[in-house]
């Protein structure tokens, strides 16, 4: 547990029993006046003042994958859908950070997998689902089929005062974003003040987490250079099928668990990447979802964005993965 704010954690936990993983944003440590000024400024830049909402991050469902290591198929994904639908407060949106489907060279089979993903994700009771592709969705055909189903692979949108950026680091078949997309990112962010709350969601880590397992983005440093001009950036990603938390400058990076199988902690593990063995007794162990809530209020003494990762096992909480500030430097 790192820098966790007790108060906000307890508040979150109380509303999330049995849900899975919860992720919560608070504009913290601001007086009512400061926050009001910040929100007004963001409203002017963004078209929308920050206001309360929550969202969910899902990742790596690999629809179509059938073990080893695990025989779950889409069970964990469907369980996650049920959990989201059981949330006491309906989230505004779901972010899916890649590997919606598992790869196959048979186009028809891949079409079926994408359809199946859509069928299951349609059952999520949210107004908006936003995705980025993973290499298993888009690595073999430069994202051709993915685009037919889910649209562009990088884009941005504003939601209640938070700017969301979908970054694609898979369709060039390599772990890279590429110069065109970098130029687009710069342009996209140019209209925002330094303090704008920005959530970047992508598939692979934007830093060298474990390059020999392909847990990196080769031009991730270039992306970070662009993002480092902003004070309040959160990067959400998948790919590594496990929790991870990392800070580069003021930017916090969080990996989400998968909905199919888990990879182990790479620390001290030499050699090839192996999956965590499937545990029949605890089929959903090490799998998870993440929900994020943002109360949009100025609450003196409250903290900012807190993230809690809980396994995809009903009524079982396991650990919190830290806290960071959505609003690090209030704009006055």
């Amino acid at each position: 547990m790192k820098q966790t704010d007790r108060r906000s954690f307890l508040k979150i936990a109380a509303s999330s029993v049995g849900i899975g993983l919860l992720y919560s944003a608070y504009p913290a440590a601001l007086s009512a006046g400061e926050a009001g000024g910040l929100f007004s400024a963001l409203g002017r830049a963004n078209g929308e003042k920050p206001s309360p909402f929550s969202f969910v991050q899902l990742s790596d469902a690999h629809v179509g994958f059938n073990g080893p290591p695990d025989p779950l198929g889409t069970k964990a994904f469907e369980r996650a859908v049920d959990m989201i639908n059981a949330l006491p407060q309906r989230p505004d949106l779901v972010l899916f950070t890649g590997d919606l489907t598992h790869d196959t060279e048979d186009r028809d089979v891949h079409v079926q997998r994408m359809k199946q993903f859509q069928e299951i994700s349609k059952r999520i009771n949210v107004p908006l689902i936003k995705c980025v592709p993973g290499e298993h969705d888009a690595g073999l055909d430069s994202g051709g089929l993915y685009r037919e189903f889910f649209g562009e692979t990088h884009y941005s949108f504003d939601h209640r005062g938070v700017h969301f950026v979908a970054l694609d680091n898979v369709t060039r078949a390599k772990p890279e974003v590429g110069s065109e997309q970098l130029a687009w990112l710069k342009k996209d962010l140019a209209r925002f003040p330094k303090t704008a709350p920005i959530v970047v969601f992508t598939h692979r880590p934007l830093f060298d987490l474990r390059p020999d397992w392909e847990w990196f983005t080769s031009d991730g440093d270039d992306v970070m250079n662009v993002l480092s001009a902003y004070d309040n950036v959160t990067v959400l990603y998948g790919h590594i099928h496990r929790d991870d938390e990392h800070q580069i400058g003021a930017v916090h990076h969080y990996a989400s668990r998968s909905l199919i199988f888990a990879f182990p902690d790479p620390t001290g593990v030499a050699g090839p990447r192996k999956t965590v063995p499937f545990d029949k007794e605890h089929p959903f162990k090490n799998l998870g979802i993440r929900t994020v809530s943002f109360n949009g209020k100025s609450e003196p003494g409250a903290t900012s964005l807190s993230i809690e990762d809980v396994e995809l096992t009903a009524r079982e909480f396991q650990g919190i993965n830290g806290v960071h500030q959505l609003f690090r430097n209030p704009l006055v």
Partner: peptide, 17 residues
């Protein structure tokens, strides 16, 4: 050092090195 195939090439690409 471990050199990897970083051009996605299918099912077991993740361990091609």
């Amino acid at each position: 050092f471990t050199t990897i195939c970083d051009h996605f090439c299918g099912a077991n690409h993740g361990n091609m090195n």
